[in-house]
């Protein structure tokens, strides 16, 4: 299956992997601080949230969609969980409420896309705005929600703890990777998702139930976003809902797409997200060690991403006769 997709021996995935490895070696050899185990773990920890969100984004893109609401879901549902816990609700129930909220948002996304046939990019954008608006107005008192309530220690351990010296967020990233990989590779719904992403009309004619599948797809995306939010919340002990309005979602898209998941759907998998996350992680970590200002980091990061895309386009040029219409 991979063989039919790869036109050149060097796919974008491999180019990005090579760049990531190259940068890793460069930092490894020149920066003593970079070499330390602690630093490598913190590298992983810093990008694990991004990586988890990237997995959700990858799922939506594979099914020929995009989920611009994933960051909003992350912020708003986790903020609500903290607020509920503060108001005295048992943490378990609060978590359940947050989970249901995120699933509901995912289903709204899916319904808009599947039943009302709104373009995914626009449906999820509107839902992101709506989700922020509804939760902020109706459910939250404040932009910034602190976790004030006494909660069981395991909650803090989600984001703050470590197992065998490895921070929990990293382990959780690995866990989500594994689960998503199993889903995409071995679950029937996962296989169908590729079919739908590759060619929705053909998938539908074949008998695949595109609409329920779309609902499932966006629900899973939202749940992944919620999970990332809870990890973040338990790490910092507060949720700043303004993150919903930030440009973070673009970083998430980049992580997913830079590793070689085609925006036109049906291609790629968990491995691509890991590679994309690795590149971003190495870059950000190395530059922070070099004390590169944040804005310069962004420039360097984007230029490297651009080079990767250009290299891919030169090695695997698009064919005018086979490229898909309306594919942006």
């Amino acid at each position: 299956m991979m063989a039919t997709r790869t036109r050149s021996p060097l796919s974008q995935e491999m180019i990005v992997a090579a760049i990531a490895a190259l940068l890793f070696m460069a930092f490894f050899l020149t920066q003593p601080v970079f070499r330390t185990t602690d630093n490598l773990l913190s590298l992983l920890q810093n990008v694990s949230i991004l990586g988890i969100l990237g997995l959700g984004m990858a799922l939506s893109i594979i099914g020929r969609g995009i989920d611009l609401s994933i960051v909003t879901v992350m912020a708003m549902s986790s903020a609500w969980v903290l607020q509920l816990a503060n108001s005295g609700l048992p943490l378990g129930l609060a978590l359940l409420a947050g989970l249901l909220l995120s699933i509901a948002v995912g289903l709204v996304n899916g319904a808009l896309i599947a039943f009302l046939e709104v373009p995914a990019i626009f449906a999820t954008l509107a839902v992101a705005t709506l989700n922020y608006g509804v939760v902020r107005t109706a459910l939250l008192d404040d932009n910034l929600v602190y976790l004030k309530a006494e909660v069981p220690g395991w909650f803090h351990a989600i984001g703050g703890g470590a197992l065998f010296g490895i921070p929990n967020p990293v382990l959780l990233f690995a866990l989500v990777c594994l689960l998503l990989h199993l889903f995409l590779r071995y679950d029937i719904a996962g296989r169908f998702l590729y079919a739908m992403g590759e060619n929705p009309a053909a998938a539908r004619i074949t008998g695949i139930a595109n609409r329920p599948l779309t609902l499932l797809q966006y629900a899973i995306c939202s749940v992944i976003g919620f999970g990332a939010g809870m990890i973040l919340a338990s790490t910092i002990g507060s949720v700043e809902t303004r993150i919903a309005r930030s440009t973070m979602v673009y970083d998430v898209i980049l992580v997913a797409v830079i590793g070689g998941i085609g925006l036109s759907g049906g291609k790629g998998g968990v491995r691509n997200v890991i590679i994309g996350t690795a590149l971003i992680g190495v870059l950000l970590n190395g530059m922070t060690i070099l004390n590169t200002p944040y804005t310069v980091q962004n420039i360097i990061k984007s230029v490297i991403l651009m080079l990767a895309i250009v290299a891919d386009s030169i090695l695997n040029p698009r064919d005018e006769q086979t490229s898909q219409q309306g594919d942006i």
Binding site: T247, Y250, I253, L254, V257, L263, P293, T295, V296, N298, I299, K301, S302, V303, L305, M306, I309, V310, S313, I314, P317, R318, S323, D327, I328
Partner: peptide, 29 residues
């Protein structure tokens, strides 16, 4: 990039958006 090298419009302009924005931020600083 998009017309002649046939890059993806969404991805390419996303990256130029970040680059230009960062340059402006740097200058603003």
């Amino acid at each position: 990039l998009i017309g002649y090298l046939k890059l993806r419009a969404f991805l390419t302009t996303l990256v130029t958006m970040i680059i230009v924005k960062s340059v402006v931020d740097l200058l603003l600083l």
